[in-house]
Design a protein around this nucleic acid. Structure first.
Length: 196
DNA sequence: TGAATGATGCGCT
DNA sequence: GCGCATCATTCAT
């Protein structure tokens, strides 16, 4: 498990080919200094959405008000509202005008579990963060946190030395277009993923 | 235990 | 108006 001191990742971590970032992001710690207190979790599952030529990527329709952050520089949050009731958190990767992002799909709680339980009443701990919508609900993330600089102090990723022993690489969940691309990575054997 | 479906609002055509 | 990077509930087996 990674008991070392947490090192905050800088913009250069995100400013790389998205699939490299995706492989490296599994096992990293996400920290959110929310109004209710600090929350943190270890990332177990994520997906890549890469460029205007990826039909499933929101950037495929060109730059709009909603997806604008993805067209900016790497290292910012992209949070959107979906299905009338859920939010999804992404990390913007690659350079300006190369729209791409990584969707955070699942994580294992580390700190602030009491806050997560309050945000998602009636859930078992293993169900607090095992899905993109559930993650944002338990963390209390909404569009208000869209466009945050991940090099800042409110929302960021950290490395504590933990390395996921093995990754599973498979197809993305919940999309209808480009279903064959193996751009969903998750930690093999983890109980804290959205689905097998 | 797995498949089907309803909830619910907003961005984009 | 339609479709959506979801989830909880319902219904069938």
């Amino acid at each position: 498990m990674g008991q070392n001191r947490l090192h905050k990742l800088s913009r250069s971590f995100y400013d790389r080919p998205t699939l490299e970032v995706l492989a490296d992001i599994i096992g990293k710690v996400i920290v959110y200094n929310s109004p209710r207190g600090e929350l943190s979790a270890r990332i177990t599952e994520a997906e890549a959405y890469i460029g205007e030529s990826d039909p499933a990527c929101h950037a495929a329709v060109g730059k709009t008000e909603r997806n604008g952050v993805m067209f900016g520089p790497a290292g910012y949050s992209y949070i959107y509202f979906i299905y009338g009731m859920y939010h999804c958190l992404n990390f913007v990767t690659e350079q300006k005008d190369h729209p791409a992002a990584i969707l955070l799909r699942a994580a294992r709680p580390i700190s602030g579990v009491e806050i997560m339980r309050r945000n998602s009443p009636g859930k078992k701990d293993v169900e607090l963060l095992n899905g993109p919508g559930k993650f944002c609900r338990s963390f209390g993330l909404t569009r208000r946190q869209n466009g945050l600089d991940l090099a800042g102090n409110e929302l960021y990723l950290g490395d504590d030395g933990f390395k996921s022993p093995k990754l599973v690489k498979t197809t993305r969940i919940g999309i209808q277009k480009a279903r064959d691309l193996p751009w969903r990575y998750y930690e093999a054997g983890s109980d804290y993923i959205s689905c097998k």
